[in-house]
Write a protein that binds this DNA or RNA. Structure first.
Ligand code: FES
Ligand code: FES
Lengths: 146, 146
DNA sequence: CCGTTTTCAACATAATTTTATAGATTTTAT
DNA sequence: ATAAAATCTATAAAATTATGTTGAAAACGG
């Protein structure tokens, strides 16, 4: 299975929750509510949000009334940024990003096909913003209100 | 990192080796030579080739002079078949294939985006045969003979 | 101003899956 | 018989996934 790690998936859902509350002035979202909405352990979300904070995709406010919020408007956050932060990259194989990872590159045909597949994915996630996903979400909920 | 598992990658390289020798009448390829050529542990290759045998992508001949060979001509083996066999599927998330995996599906916006990304990948690997990769390989080696 | 609550933050640990290696056994051609 | 090769079973190492425990900062009520 060419699978996304849970970090990438959970992290995107986390960001989507924050995106939904973006603009609700002063209202940061607390991890516990995300954890409940998405049925993901708080502890695990805490680990996931650290890199998102480091890479300046989210801001944190400590203490009572605190929580997390997006650092930028959702239409200025690409899905590829989230994945790059949480998964290290969007590459299917290390060889693509890391020059020294694999000495086989110059004569490895499979490199070509993983590379091309990676470009497909990258292209898709580079042109998809959190705002796009928010809209998909709203549309989906509208179609199935109950 | 949306990464392929080593099984998918090593397995494709293994199949590529077999493809190169397809047609060399009577000459099955032994795992040890694959292991040497690709610098992958024999024991690990043994584990990888089992599902390939089960799904009838390769044939084995036991005993001295034995080895493995493709069960079909390389132009009739899609890369997607190999990946499906070794990775369980080409899906980025389980939710896509496994109906019951995730109850969130009806109201999960991220499902839509993983699904679309998966279709991109699937489309690519469905239209790519082992023969295609063999040709890429030959071309690459020709361009860089030494 | 002080203590309490709320929340993030940091650290440690456990469970699971993936990746990889090792050894002994069976099959078959010569 | 012998050697070559797949096959089977077991196990070890590493990474991923997940949970638990405690500490520290900020807001708030009095
Ligand atoms: S496996 Fe690294 S370039 Fe092919
Ligand atoms: S996480 Fe399963 S459908 Fe979205």
């Amino acid at each position: 299975m060419i699978k996304m790690s849970t970090k990438g998936r959970y992290g995107t859902r986390l960001m989507l929750q924050l995106a939904h509350h973006y603009g609700d002035k002063g209202q940061a979202v607390i991890l516990r509510s995300v954890a409940e909405n998405e049925t993901i352990s708080i502890r695990y979300l805490e680990q996931i949000i650290i890199p998102l904070k480091v890479s300046k995709l989210v801001k944190s406010i400590r203490g009572a009334g605190g929580g997390y919020s997006l650092a930028r408007p959702p239409d200025q956050i690409k899905i590829s940024e989230i994945l790059h932060t949480l998964e290290g990259s969007c590459c299917l194989v290390e060889c693509i990003e890391d020059e020294d990872f694999c000495p086989r590159k110059p004569y490895c045909a499979t490199f070509e096909i993983w590379n091309k597949a990676t470009q497909l994915l990258k292209g898709y996630f580079d042109n998809l913003t959190l705002q796009d996903v928010v809209e998909i979400d709203r549309k989906k909920k509208k179609a199935k209100p109950k």
